[in-house]
Design a protein around this nucleic acid. Sequence first.
DNA 1: ACGATTCGCGCG
DNA 2: AAAGCGCGCGAATCGT
Length: 591
Amino acid sequence: MYILVSRTVDGNVAVSTLTDTGAARSPSRSLSTAEFLGFVRDHEALMPRWVWDDTARWYPQLLAAGIRVQRGHDLRLCHVILRNSELTATSQLARAAPGVWDSASVPDSPAAVSNDTLFDLAFGAETSASGGIIAQDRGVGGTQPGDVDAYAELISQLDAVASCAEPGRLRLLLAAESAGALIAAEMQFAGLPWRSDIHANLLTAELGPRVAHGVRPVRLEELARQIRAALDDASLNPDSQQDLLRALRRADVAVASTRAWELKKVTHPVVEPLLEYKKLSRLLGANGWHWMDTWIVGGRFHPEYVPGGVVTGRWATRGGGALQLPKQVRGAVVADDGWKLVVADAAQLEPRILAALSADTAMAAAGRGKDLYEGIVTSKVVETRAQAKVAMLGAMYGATTGESGRLLPRLARAYPRALALTETAARSGERGDIVTTRLGRSSPRPDENWRATQAQAYDPAASATDERRARSQARDWGRFTRNFIVQGSAAEWALCWMAEIRKALWDLERPDEKRVIDDTMTGPAPAFDHSPHLVFFLHDEVIVHTPAEFAGEVTRIITEAATTAGRLLFGDFPVDFLLTVATVDSYAEAQ
DNA sequence: ACGATTCGCGCG
DNA sequence: AAAGCGCGCGAATCGT
């Protein structure tokens, strides 16, 4: 059963019920926001799939009211997939002219104030000034898809899937993508446990006492002094790459840029303080006191996750740099008293995905029950684990030179099917064709400029430069499609993994628990205050925050979910998806 | 003065 | 030329 949810012109919420095929639809009911909350609460027991234009617009207000839903269908995210998928290329949906569902983001509406409401409810009114950090800037202007649009869109999507050659793949992808959207909203709401006191101590130990935003801390000031002395330039600003490069050249330091890796290659008294300056300057700028003040609220880090934010299907984040959380500061991620963090990451995920995609049983065997790179060494393909890793990455990213390039022929001999798949994907991209992931997400087509450059190279009057540029550009796009098919399929595995984890954690919850919103609350968010829940996701890694007594059960759930995800994508193909799982108090312990 | 672009570096 | 993919972010710098 589907329940279609949309906004009416007068600001109410329209709901109607559909059968699984979309064939029969109940009359639409118009509800106030308060009535809508009650409606969802009452109907969730029927386990419907809630259909709405954009999970990020609807779900936060439900979470704020202590309501979670088990299943969703995000029309916007699913539309993007179906619009571009090779599998649905002949559908009405894909052939129609671009419309509201193709705009970059579903436009904002009066409902967006719920973001501030959410913040007030969850964290207390005194924080409302910073409330906008959740889900703001989702776009302005334009028309919001209404009741009729949403219904027509759902029917169009169901039709596109039903009429394609392998509907099972896309059905799974759309369900996983939609589950991801629910998880993203829940993780943003719950937040990652963050100890500001530990973080602040770390900053002071590294940088010196706290200073105002824009002021250089004492440790950085001291290093700047040493750099100026070493380069004999009393007015040098080490934050200016241009100044720095000029000063380095004056001092006869042979570097083409100020990048750290390049500085490490040369010997000069300035190198040590300069590298230290860069490291600490990065810490201050990216995760310093200002970051802490902006992003840590009520002992939680609440990044905005953006499902489908990357063309390959990976998630992106907006604000806070959640997907770049440096190892340096992970010690501040600490479980609440009586709670644990269960940290799990998929070992060598992309090579395993490649082995399964290409049905390369030899490569899959190399990873059976053990580290896949070690398995490649055991099979005598290369000598060391480091070589196996660099060779595999080279195969998936399209390396042609260096150690990686030199090792590729050995990899190709041992794993011809896997390497043939990446090569075929690269050739498709070079021709301007698209490639498609395991579940049916297709790569974008290159833009007009790209095609024009290629066409130009075929002109009899084309210069050698034209041809070189066209060839180079074609290879660039080939490396993109080569990687797309692996990275995108790995993202699908990760979505399925997470969706299975969420489902199993849900079943752990005790149904009789009543959750109450208390505006003086400072601990975990209301919908998650007693039970294990996902708090972080990083491409191939998840963190579950759990009462200590459930940690063993959570570990089992995460491990079984990995096996289930592998089966969902690859059926009986014998490939293992191994995890490293750790139950810890602090994220820093899990590395 | 201010938005767009580039550099450099963090993560997978 | 960090040899090879995908991102976000802050500061400096460029362009208007």
